[in-house]
């Protein structure tokens, strides 16, 4: 026998710790059960006042109550629809303005020299501080909410687009030059596709920001949206209601985010990040 290793024995294997071997579904459900159990424990022993922290049972009952109202087309569904409109319109405006400014900044020397410094300056400001201005200009209806939502969501899209337009390398530029490509051809057939991973990073940040913008504007400016329901419930100390409303609101945000991820997967199927980044959400 020529080998010195004992036959049939694996001498050296990679070690994976026990906790990392738990399958994802088990891990996720297990963690949820643990958190609810802790919550119930805190509630049962009266560690925190029930007004501040309702029991899991109460909250669950309210979640079902709100679900019934939503499914029967009650006033909550109307409120959710208003917020959905604000979010979608805000996102559309943010994309239109974001892509335009992003291309201006990423593609032209003028944009980079003259426009970019101002954008950076505005981006560093706390953008919700502009909410009273939008309310004063656009009133207490849906327009002011759309405006703040779009305002917050525009900047990540500008940054993503501008960064994306610089993501190509010198070789690709030279190649397009030798093919006699026009500026538009270079932009649409090379620079923008190359930059899509950056652009989608911006869009995902924007999808989160647009929700925050709409709800903040509703808190500050009233109206008939979901944010107003939350504000009223909180002011009446209906804490279970606040919890369940936040849950449904987060479903709206999650759906928007998920749509962006799905589009990204279709368009950027060729990029490494698409696989690894979305794996955790699948």
């Amino acid at each position: 026998m020529s080998s010195t290793a004992p036959e049939g024995d694996t001498v050296w294997t990679e070690h994976v710790s026990l906790i990392d071997r738990i399958p994802r579904s088990v891990a996720m459900v297990g963690l949820l059960v643990a958190v609810v159990a802790l919550w119930q424990f805190v509630h049962s022993f009266g560690i925190v006042s029930p007004i501040i922290l309702p029991s899991p049972g109460e909250t669950w009952a309210d979640i079902q109550l709100v679900a019934r109202n939503l499914l029967s087309g009650g006033y909550m569904l109307k409120a959710l629809w208003i917020t959905t409109q604000e979010v979608l319109l805000g996102f559309l405006f943010a994309m239109a303005i974001g892509f335009s400014l992003g291309i201006l900044v990423g593609e032209t020397a003028f944009g980079e020299r003259a426009v970019l410094p101002y954008l950076v300056a505005i981006d560093t400001m706390p953008k919700v501080a502009f909410a009273p201005l939008f309310l004063a200009w656009l009133g207490f209806g849906i327009a002011s909410k759309v405006a703040l939502a779009a305002f917050i969501a525009t900047f990540p899209i500008v940054v993503g687009t501008a960064a994306g337009l610089h993501a190509h390398d010198e070789n690709a530029r030279m190649l397009f030059k030798t093919m006699g490509a026009s500026r538009w051809q270079t932009l649409f057939k090379m620079k923008l596709p190359t930059g899509l991973p950056h652009i989608f990073t911006g869009l995902k940040i924007a999808a989160v920001g647009v929700m925050a913008g709409a709800i903040t504007a509703e808190f500050l400016g009233g109206g008939k949206g979901f944010g107003e329901l939350i504000r009223v419930a909180a002011s009446q100390l209906q804490t279970p209601r606040v919890f369940s409303l936040i849950l449904y609101l987060s479903l709206l945000g999650f759906t928007l985010f998920w749509v962006v991820v799905l589009v990204e997967r279709r368009l950027v199927f060729w990029h490494r990040s698409t696989i690894s980044e979305t794996a955790g959400l699948a």
Binding site: D169, N171, A172, M174, L175, T178, M190, P193, T194, V268, F269, W270, H271
Partner: peptide, 12 residues
């Protein structure tokens, strides 16, 4: 016709 050190094919 021109060719460089890098193939520069577009992955999409």
């Amino acid at each position: 016709g021109m060719m460089f050190q890098q193939a520069t094919l577009f992955p999409w």
